[in-house]
């Protein structure tokens, strides 16, 4: 059996309600059926992966079919794990009086905008690190466009920010050790600066994520859209932005294309779709375009997903 060509990381995104989850699920199933150990991950805070497979999927990785694992990242659970780790470390290092005093601040940061995104991104990086052991491919079902774009461009933005912080800390440490020329204790403490260490590790993680996300051999982003005006415009904008950040685009998937002979009621709709399809082929002529037909039933569960897996086998 020859395995189809695939990239280690594929991302499915697009406007809400276009069928991202269905496509991601079908793609993952297609890979698994080819004997590729595949993990399908939902990063959308409003999860629907469990609905697509019609199986219970939780915030822990579980095997749902031969060669197929699934997880729905729960931002709150991840954030709580992170906070617990910090609090435990704090109890070892800081006096309880201080811990008590800054409890309020921790709460503020914990509920700040972006905390959820950051928690998802952390898990996202953790999963990426696990590639090859045991998963050979990871399929991400991402949140609607805006959210995902922010998530994927985080490494670049935060990388610059971290550089700046590291620079400042290095300068402060340098000056402090100049002053501490006569104080060996302080000097030793500065040699292993935990702040520089932690910021540096963060930076490394972001750089790793960035190098994977921008590697066309490893990753590809697929846009799922319908043959309508607004999804076309939004996809165009999103592709432009991803290209700006150097994230490779794998292709465009047009979902719910009404087939010929669908009856007189659908005929008018079909004709308008055909016009938009033409626009799609013109707009995205440099990208592979896959058309997925509108089925007479809802795509839910393995057997229904199997109806479209063959279309998604060779993306």
């Amino acid at each position: 059996m020859t395995r189809p060509a695939y990239r280690a990381f594929s991302f499915f995104g697009g406007k809400g309600g276009t069928g991202k989850t269905t496509c991601a699920a079908a793609r993952a199933l297609a890979l698994a059926e080819e004997g590729i150990r595949t993990l399908v991950v939902s990063t959308d805070p409003a999860h629907s992966l469990a609905d697509a497979f019609d199986l219970p999927i939780g915030d822990e990785i579980s095997l749902i079919s031969p060669n197929l694992w699934a997880i729905e990242i729960d931002a709150e659970v991840e954030a709580q794990k992170y906070m617990k780790g910090i609090q435990e470390k704090m109890l070892h290092i800081v006096s309880p009086v201080i811990v008590d005093e800054i409890k309020r601040q921790i709460e503020i940061a914990y509920s700040s905008p972006g905390a959820e995104e950051a928690a998802i991104f952390d898990k996202f990086i953790e999963l990426m690190e696990h590639l090859g052991d045991p998963y050979e491919a990871i399929v991400f079902d991402t949140a609607p466009t805006g959210h995902t774009l922010r998530l994927l461009t985080l490494p670049e933005i935060l990388g610059a920010w971290l550089d700046h912080l590291l620079e400042k800390r290095a300068r402060a440490v340098e000056l402090m050790s100049m002053v501490a020329k006569y104080d060996r204790d302080v000097r030793q403490k500065l040699e292993t600066d935990p702040i520089t260490d932690i910021l540096g590790k963060r930076k490394e993680k972001f750089e790793m994520a960035r190098s994977i996300l921008t590697d066309p051999e490893k990753s590809a982003f697929y846009f799922v859209l319908n043959a309508e005006k607004l999804p076309i415009l939004e996809t165009q904008r999103a592709i432009r932005l991803l290209r700006k950040y150097g994230i490779p685009i794998g292709g465009v998937l047009v979902n719910r294309v009404i087939p010929e002979g669908a009856g007189t009621f659908m005929e008018q709709h079909r004709l308008s779709q055909q016009a938009y399809l033409k626009t799609i082929h013109e707009t995205f002529m440099d990208l592979p375009i896959t058309e997925i037909p509108f089925l007479d039933t809802d795509i839910r569960g393995m057997s229904e997903l199997n109806k479209i897996t063959k279309l998604l086998k060779n993306l």
């Binding site: 704090m90 290092i93 940061a109 905390a115």
Partner: peptide
Amino acid sequence: SYYTLELLP
């Protein structure tokens, strides 16, 4: 701010 929290200890 979420990431700087780990510097708090």
